[in-house]
Design a binder for these strands. Structure first.
Lengths: 146, 146
DNA sequence: TATTGTTATACTCTATAACTATA
DNA sequence: TATAGTTATAGAGTATAACAATA
């Protein structure tokens, strides 16, 4: 049996507030202060899914092509990505993450996880409460990527 | 007995990924397209906690005072907040949300909750799974505001 | 002197419009 | 003609530095 509309609405409200506040708090933890969220999101995509064209990156990040060109310019100047002309279709430019870019992403993830682990630790959660958080995390990911 | 370091780290990683992705997905639902996240966050704070000075808002939003001055200028031009000089300390300026500002916040919250409720509904979660999400939400809020 | 807020200035991220090169 | 990317330009949000008014 599926859930009632009332349960759905109550859960949605609780979860929306909690996810927003937590994400916002964690976002302040970065590997490099000069690295923006937008740049990190592009690097994280490239690290997970490999080389992508400007257009593909723009679609994924939901920004326009000129915005992505601009962002890739910044990342390239910092040495975190490289552009490679596409041999098959010479209109295209493939963007690859560099070792330095990969390192920055990993450092940032590590910092955020350490920050969150420290926050969890201070509250003396029980194993059962942590298990609830992990179960909920899995459910939340199903919501975003069904 | 409090939880093990390993549980803390695993939970932190799961929760960090889930919260970021969900918040990102929900952020795209706004009441007004011209309203930025930064502006909405200020309005939501004023709605929940009442009048605040520029400095207090800057600290809460973790931006500098000039940035907050700039943002309040934009919100005031749109009619969503008003500045009132503080009678007791004339260096201060109190910022209040207007009815129009309150309406915008409520509309946005409603939209986001409807979007999330629809997403939850499509997955046919059980009442037990929804309860897990609500319990986790309460724990997440304790993490952010201990 | 310290605090509150503003102004001046600069950089990033974002957009739209117009352009070049290629398919 | 259509597509991939860039350049030009403009607006919002952010920062630092310097300032005025007040405590």
């Amino acid at each position: 049996m599926s859930a009632s509309d009332e349960s759905l609405q109550l859960t949605a409200t609780d979860l929306r507030m909690a996810a927003f506040r937590l994400a916002r708090r964690l976002r302040s933890a970065r590997a490099v202060d000069a690295m923006s969220d937008a740049q990190l999101a592009v690097l994280a995509t490239l690290r997970m899914h490999g080389r992508r064209t400007i257009t593909a990156l723009a679609e994924r990040e939901r920004v326009t092509a000129p915005s992505m060109t601009n962002m890739i310019n910044g990342l390239e100047e910092q040495g975190f990505v490289v552009r490679t002309p596409d041999a098959e279709d010479r209109r295209r430019v493939q963007v690859d993450i560099t070792d330095a870019g990969t390192e920055i992403v990993m450092q940032t993830i590590r910092r955020r996880d350490e920050l969150l682990a420290a926050m969890l630790s201070e509250l003396d959660f029980t194993e059962k409460e942590l298990a609830t958080l992990r179960e909920a995390s899995a459910l939340m990911r199903k919501v975003v990527d069904p």
